[in-house]
Design a protein around this nucleic acid. Structure first.
Length: 478
RNA sequence: UCCUGAGUAGCUCAGCCGGUUAGAGCAUCUGACUGUUAAUCAGAGGGUCGCUGGUUCGAGCCCAGCCUCAGGAGCCA
C-alpha cells in the first residue's frame, strides 16, 4: 500500500507543485469537477480538481457522496477562493463505491436525532468528526494532567461484588441460563453456583477501590467506563459512561477543590490550544443553533467565549448553607417562580436552583461544599457540627453537576457508625474498612463525568452525541 | 418512571371542519452548463400517513391501547 499524506498535513503544507497521494471519503462532488474529500484528520476538506473532459465517464459516475477514493495528483495553489491549496488529479481510483440511492448521509444538513439513528456513519459528518476529535484530545489531556503531577493511573475492576456504594441501580453480571437459574431450597436464585460464586454487577464507581490505591501510592486516578441501570431519559445521563476519579492521600477538602478547579481549567485550556479549528467550528454550529431559538432564550456569548471565561475566572466557592440563604432571598423564590420553593435547610437542591446560582446569580462555575449529611454518601467526612459533611459539587452552566467529590471519613468509628445508620453492611466492605484500621489518614477525591465535560467543551446539548455509541434505556444498537 | 410535544417520500416539514388521485423544499436519477464552494437551470421517479383495534357511508385527520423519538423533571456524573 503506497504512502499517502493526510489532508491535515496537505492543507498546512508550505510546499506546492509537488506530487501527492491523498485518500479519503467524498463529501460532495460539484460540477463534475470538484471533489470535497475528507479523511477525518481535520475538519476541513481538500478540494480535488478533476479534468472531467479527459476522464472516463464511468469513473466520474462512481465519484458519489460517501465513496472512498485514492487520488494521485499535484498539490497546487487554488484558483478558487474557498481554499488555499487543491489537488489537480492525475489518477483517481475508487476504493469503495457508495450507492447514492442508499447512502443515508446526503450533502445537506441533518438533524442530530436522525444522525443518532445512524451512529455508525455519523463520524463522517463535520459535527461528529469535530466532537470525537475533541473527545480524543480531552482524554489525552486527562492523562497528561495527572502524569505531570505524579499520579498513578489505577485500573479498578469493571465487575464488582459490592453493591454497597449507593450510587445507583446496577447491571447484574452472570453466566446463568436465565430461564433456569439454579435455586436454593427456599427457591431463591443460588448465586453460589454462579461464575464468581456470588452475585456480581458492573461497577457504578471505582472510588472505593481507588481509595485502596491512594492509601499506598499517594495519588492515583481512574479513567474508565461506569454503568448505571437507572431508567434515566435525559440529555445528561447514560447507562454506560466514562468517569475520571482521582483519589489523593493527605488531601483535605480545600486541596481537593483546588485540584479539581485546576484540572477542569487544564482540560479547557488544552482543547482551546490544540483543537482550535474544531472548537471554532463547534462554536459556529452552536451560534447558528442559538439563532433558531426565540430571542429571550438565546445566549449572547459564544462557545469560545464561555470556555475562555471559565479559564479566566475563579470558580465561586460557597457552602450549601450559604447557597440556601441566597436561594431563599432570590427573586424567583419570592415570586414563587421556582417549581420547588426553597423554604428550609436540609433538602437537596433541584436543577432549577443549581441553574439559578450558576447562570443567574454568580454567572460562573460554582463549587458548593458542606452539604447536609442526610443527602450525601456514607464515606464523606463528618463535620464537627454533626449536621454536614465535607462534600463538594462543582456546578457548570448548562450541564449542572459535573464533579462530585469529598474529603473521606478516615476515622474508623465515625465511618462504621455512619454505615450502620445508613444500613450499609460493614462486613461486606471489610476490605474498605481495613484502610481505616491500618494506617488511616486524611484523604480526598472526586469524580468527573467525562461525557459531561465533553458536552461542556463542545457545546453539544445531548450527552448521547458526545459518546461514539451511546447506551441508554431501550437502546444498545451498534 | 412522571409531565409535555411529536411520528406523513431518503431528510426536514405542510396537510383546513372527517370527503375524490396525499403536497413542498432539499436529496436522488436523467439532460443542459462547466472554476464550483449548500453551484445553477429543465425534467423524472419516489408514500403500508409509527403499530393494533374501534367509531363512521367514508379516517393521514376522531377515540382507545401499545411502540418509538424529542424536551423538561426525578436519580446522578
Amino acid at each position: 500500500m503506497s504512502q499517502r499524506t493526510k489532508i491535515k498535513a496537505l492543507l498546512e503544507s508550505e510546499q506546492t507543485n509537488i506530487e501527492v497521494t491523498v485518500k479519503g471519503w467524498v463529501r460532495t462532488f460539484r460540477n463534475n469537477q470538484f471533489i470535497a474529500l475528507n479523511d477525518g484528520s481535520t475538519n476541513s476538506n481538500i478540494q480535488i480538481v478533476v479534468d472531467f473532459e479527459n476522464t472516463d465517464p464511468n469513473l466520474l459516475k462512481r465519484i458519489t457522496t460517501g465513496a472512498a477514493l485514492s487520488v494521485v495528483g499535484e498539490l497546487v495553489a487554488s484558483l478558487g477562493k474557498g481554499q488555499k491549496v487543491e489537488v489537480k488529479a492525475k489518477q483517481i481510483e475508487v476504493l469503495g463505491d457508495s450507492d447514492p440511492e442508499k447512502y443515508p448521509l446526503q450533502p445537506k444538513k441533518h438533524s442530530l436525532e436522525f444522525l443518532r439513528e445512524i451512529a455508525h456513519l455519523r463520524f463522517r459528518t463535520n459535527t461528529f468528526g469535530a466532537v470525537f476529535r475533541v473527545r480524543n484530545s480531552l482524554s489525552y489531556a486527562v492523562h497528561t494532567f495527572f502524569h505531570e503531577r505524579g499520579f498513578v493511573y489505577l485500573h479498578t475492576p469493571i465487575i464488582t461484588a459490592s453493591d454497597a456504594e449507593g450510587a445507583g441501580e446496577t447491571f447484574h453480571v452472570t453466566n446463568f441460563d436465565l430461564a433456569y437459574p439454579p435455586r436454593t431450597e427456599n427457591g431463591d436464585v443460588d448465586f453460589k453456583q454462579d461464575f464468581f460464586g456470588r452475585a456480581t454487577n458492573l461497577t457504578v464507581s471505582g472510588q472505593l477501590e481507588g481509595e485502596l490505591g491512594a492509601m499506598a501510592l499517594s495519588d492515583i486516578y481512574t479513567f474508565g467506563p461506569t454503568f448505571r441501570a437507572e431508567n434515566s431519559n435525559t440529555t445528561r445521563h447514560l447507562a454506560e459512561f466514562w468517569m475520571i476519579e482521582p483519589e489523593m492521600a493527605f488531601y483535605d477538602l480545600e486541596d481537593n477543590m483546588n485540584l479539581a478547579e485546576e484540572f477542569l481549567k487544564y482540560l479547557i485550556g488544552y482543547v482551546l490550544k490544540n483543537n482550535a479549528e474544531d472548537i471554532e467550528f463547534l462554536s459556529q454550529r452552536l451560534a447558528e443553533e442559538e439563532k433558531q431559538k426565540p430571542q429571550n432564550e438565546r445566549s449572547e456569548t459564544t462557545l469560545i467565549e464561555k470556555l475562555q471565561f471559565c479559564l479566566d475566572n475563579d470558580f465561586q466557592r460557597l457552602t450549601y448553607t450559604e447557597a440556601i440563604d441566597i436561594l431563599k432571598e432570590s427573586t424567583p423564590n419570592k415570586k414563587k417562580k421556582f417549581t420547588y420553593l426553597v423554604e428550609g435547610w436540609g433538602t437537596d437542591l433541584q436543577s432549577e436552583h443549581e441553574r439559578y446560582l450558576v447562570e443567574k446569580h454568580f454567572k460562573k462555575p460554582v463549587i458548593l461544599t458542606d452539604y447536609p449529611k442526610e443527602i450525601k454518601a456514607f464515606y464523606m467526612r463528618q463535620n464537627d457540627d454533626g449536621k454536614t459533611v465535607r462534600a463538594m459539587d462543582i456546578l457548570f452552566p448548562g450541564i449542572g453537576e459535573i464533579v462530585g467529590g469529598s474529603q473521606r471519613e478516615e476515622r474508623l468509628e465515625k465511618l462504621e457508625q455512619r454505615m450502620t445508620e445508613m444500613g450499609i453492611p460493614t462486613e461486606e466492605l471489610w476490605w474498605y474498612l481495613d484502610t481505616r484500621r491500618f494506617g488511616s489518614c486524611p484523604h480526598a477525591g472526586f469524580g468527573l463525568g467525562f461525557e459531561r465535560m465533553v458536552q461542556f467543551v463542545t457545546g453539544m446539548g445531548n450527552i448521547r452525541d458526545v459518546i461514539p455509541f451511546p447506551r441508554f434505556p431501550k437502546n444498545a444498537e451498534f
